[in-house]
Nucleic acid binder design. Sequence first.
DNA 1: GAGTTTGAAACT
DNA 2: CAGTTTCAAACTC
Length: 668
Amino acid sequence: MDTPQKSVITQIGTPISKSRFEDSPVFNYINSLSPIRTIKSLPIPHPFSSLNFTSPPSVFTSPHLTSSHKESRFFKTHNSSSLPPNPIESQEEDESTPNEEVSAEEEASIEMGLSQTNPDVLAASPCGRDTTDLSLVPYAPRGENGSCEEAGMELQKMYDNVQGKIETPDWESLISDASELLIFDSPNDSEAFRCLMMQRTSNSEARFCTGVGMMQTMQQPDSNNEHESSNAIPYEAVSLLHRGVRRRCLDFEMPGNKQMVNENNTAACESSSARCVVPSIGLHLNAIAMSSKDCKTNVINDYSCSGKIQVGLQSSISTLQEALDQTENETREDADQDVPVEPALEELHLNSPKKKRLKLEAGEGESCKRCNCKKSKCLKLYCECFAAGVYCIEPCSCIDCFNKPIHEDTVLATRKQIESRNPLAFAPKVIRSSDSVLETGEDPSKTPASARHKRGCNCKKSNCLKKYCECYQGGVGCSINCRCEGCKNAFGRKDGSSNVEEAEQEEEVETSEKNIAAKSQQNTEVLMSKETSSALPMTPMPIYRQQLVQPPYSSSKNMMPPPQSFLGGGSSSGIYNSQYLRKPDISLTQSRIEKSFETVAEDRAEEMPEILIHSPVANIKSVSPNGKRVSPPHLDSSSSGSILGRRSGGRKLILHSIPSFPSLTPQH
DNA sequence: GAGTTTGAAACT
DNA sequence: CAGTTTCAAACTC
């Protein structure tokens, strides 16, 4: 259904829109853009620039009160700016319409560029922005949505007929995807914007991060076109959900599909967490928290979180074409796959008594923080959420939590206070320097040392072998900065010796037995996976999931490097990501930026193997961190052929996004 | 799930 | 800056 509709729209819409579109600067801008080349979009001074990202990240980045104002302003501008409140039309499909058209056009025109196309489109279309914003902004007079842009309105009117047929949800998802893409593609602005969105989202208090939330949302996927109320919820929920996931990477579990699309883009997954973290790489991509953390790593990083699900989902998507299809069918997929999938995953992975821990581990990376604060009100760095620069969400078990959008002022004030005391307090704890890898030419896989804990640890009893150790937790070796005693950090001792191999060996020894036992089990799975992979582009999700999940189980608790660690440094907070992007990266020359990106890509690649390439075989063989990292290239085509293909594809996409990044830099 | 351990954060 | 206390995550049972 969707596809045909779209096609209709595309065909019809394009011609029709032209007359009207041309009038709007936005459209012009869109036209000027090459769907494939995101780069273009950035350089081009579009009306947006002023509106959108000017002061984006401020919100989280630096909890300045002004930031909030800016944001509000930002939103106001959008909302009020152009649209004469047209409650009627705007209500439901305003948002979707414009974007849709554009996306449709672009999709039609471009076979590939999911990532590129959408981002551009979004960027180009104010409506897209607005939509996003609106959806994100609870406070914004949404019902209205009316706040779409003129162009959107006009278009909408024009296409009203067509649109009527179209289901908004699809578009919404598309939009959200596009937004994702956009976000990822344009590190700086997007980042900032993301942050913005984040706040807004949080404000909305709609916390979709949680799988549950998702589930709920997903369950009502399409429906609702009719009333605002009904629509509003689903729309926001869905869109928010997606965004929320990206942003916080919070609940990994979520929108696999969406992310998958992104994933094809590659950066995406991590992105949220990691990405946010791109530079540092958060809790992964820097943890995660670089997150993923962020992004991811963020993010990623963020990766970890989404990793499980994503992987599973990814397995289902091996080709761009698929991705495209997916985009088209997103809604459907969400409804169909996500719902069932999520629960399944949860059960698979999280039912065990260790559910909580596993969850945390998965999400640790980055950004997926879930605190359990009782006395700090989540307003101190004790609180992981607060420290990560994110609001607490449902999954948190905190008591008397003030780290919520409602208490935005308090949060910001507190943050400010803490920052005044320690400007780097909210900076990623683990700083990964892409430069080090590049410059030294070190093998990233063997040099976790390239990333270091910002201040170093102070461990006394844990020997830096447990997560008590922030270095270890961050997946980095101890450094001169550390004041630890009896350091045995598996990622690198303070004295410079690396225990990684040793640790691995030990771990392997420990796990070998387990693995052997598991091997027999997995053999069956392996065979299945091989068969499946060979037969189908996508591998059976269950297998991948298991594998993904398994590693943590099988491996010794302590020895397994936190997922985030691979992604990068402090993924943690989306907030910071923007900062990092702006400050360090901005200063970088384009070439250098590219390099960094490449590094990221490499890291990703490294990472991907871990997650994606957990073919049964690989899994068995490479339990240890190194093994995983090194193994990827060695993977047998037989076992991971499809995966590799995907991987390469992912990289390719990442590279595409690279150009866009530099484009942002010009601002400086 | 409760209790313990641990080390960062906060405080003095 | 050093010492102490508070805190929540990590870990153990």
